[in-house]
Every structure is written in structure tokens, then in C-alpha cells.
């Protein structure tokens, strides 16, 4: 089973990289962009075949290592 973990900065946390991307897009002539936020995607291939157990394991991985919940939110989806 594959887990796709998405990590994004919490609202209100300054994202200097997102700001820089926004500036670059504007200078390339892409208008109408209100804001850009940059995040990460982490793909995990798991041996686990039971969805419930896989969910619990991935949530724990996010809490312990993959995300820093001081500044980041995480979400994940499981793909059989």
C-alpha cells in the first residue's frame, strides 16, 4: 500500500520560499496570483495491507518525524 503524505505550513506562518516563487511568477508575467505557499510531498511504500493499521502508522510517522507540528500541518492519502 502506498501512502502519500502532504505537508504544508500552517496559516500565519511566514513562507519566504512561497513569497520568492510568487515574486518570480509575477516577474514572468503570470498575474492574478494572490499568494503562493510551498510544501512537501513524501511518498511511502508500505508492507501493511490493512487500511486502518496503515493510517495509524502513517499518522504516527507524521507526528514523530515527517512534520513539525509547531509550524506544519499534514494530511495523507492511502493508495492500495
Amino acid at each position: 500500500m502506498r501512502a502519500i503524505v502532504k505537508i504544508t505550513l500552517k496559516n500565519g506562518v511566514l513562507d519566504p520560499q512561497g513569497k520568492a516563487i510568487e515574486g518570480a511568477l509575477n516577474s514572468l508575467g503570470f498575474g492574478g496570483i494572490d499568494s503562493v505557499r510551498q510544501g512537501k510531498i513524501i511518498e511511502l511504500d508500505l508492507d501493511e495491507t490493512e487500511t486502518e493499521k496503515a493510517e495509524a502508522a502513517v499518522a504516527e510517522m507524521c507526528e514523530k518525524l515527517l512534520a513539525n507540528t509547531v509550524i506544519e500541518n499534514y494530511s495523507y492519502e492511502l493508495v492500495p
Binding site: V13, L14, P16, Q17, A20, N68, V70, I71
Partner: peptide, 11 residues
């Protein structure tokens, strides 16, 4: 220690 050290504002 609390908090986190993020990327410098100037990048």
C-alpha cells in the same frame, strides 16, 4: 526547547 528555527526571511 519550544519553537522552531525556520528558513531566514531573506532566504
Amino acid at each position: 526547547l519550544p519553537g522552531v528555527l525556520m528558513c531566514n526571511a531573506s532566504l
